[in-house]
Simulated scan of single mutants.
Amino acid sequence: MANLTVRNLDDDLVQALKERAAVHGRSVAAEHREILAKALRQPQRKTFAQVLMSMPNVGLEADFARMEDSEPVHVSG
């Protein structure tokens, strides 16, 4: 396995990594590996089916019925 050294990180970022590692019960190095693995190994694009499945249920089809205008709108140009 390879080693990775990351230089010039903001102190706040390092602190956030330490805190996140503690919450997950991991070492800082293990948390760093997990973050990198999740960011780089997951598919970069969702399929159309995945996008559709992730859409929340927002109501019944009847809730989105089109209402007919009583008078047509005319645009002059």
Rank of each mutant, 00 (worst) to 15 (best):
M67F: 09
G25T: 00
M1F: 08
F48R: 14
S76R: 05
E68Q: 08
A37G: 10
A22S: 12
Q44Y: 06
A21Q: 05
M53R: 14
G25K: 14
E34W: 08
A16V: 04
F48I: 13
D11L: 01
M67T: 06
H74M: 01
S27R: 04
A37W: 12
Q42C: 04
Q42T: 01
D11Y: 00
M1P: 13
N57L: 07
A16M: 03
P72N: 02
F64G: 04
R45G: 13
S54E: 10
S54V: 05
L17S: 05
N57Q: 13
R26Q: 13
A62G: 09
D11R: 00
K38I: 01
N8R: 15
V14D: 15
L36I: 11
V58E: 15
F64I: 01
F48C: 12
V73W: 00
G59P: 09
R45Y: 13
R20C: 06
L9Y: 03
T5D: 10
D12T: 06
K38D: 14
M53T: 13
R20Q: 13
R33N: 11
L40H: 06
E61I: 05
D10K: 02
E31S: 05
K46V: 03
R45N: 13
G25S: 07
M55T: 02
K46N: 10
A65K: 11
L36Y: 04
P43E: 14
H24N: 11
R33F: 07
Q42N: 07
Q15G: 11
S76V: 15
E61V: 06
R41G: 13
R41T: 08
Q42P: 01
A39N: 09
K46I: 01
V14Q: 14
A65T: 07
L52I: 09
E31N: 04
D10Q: 08
L40T: 10
A30R: 02
V58F: 14
V28R: 00
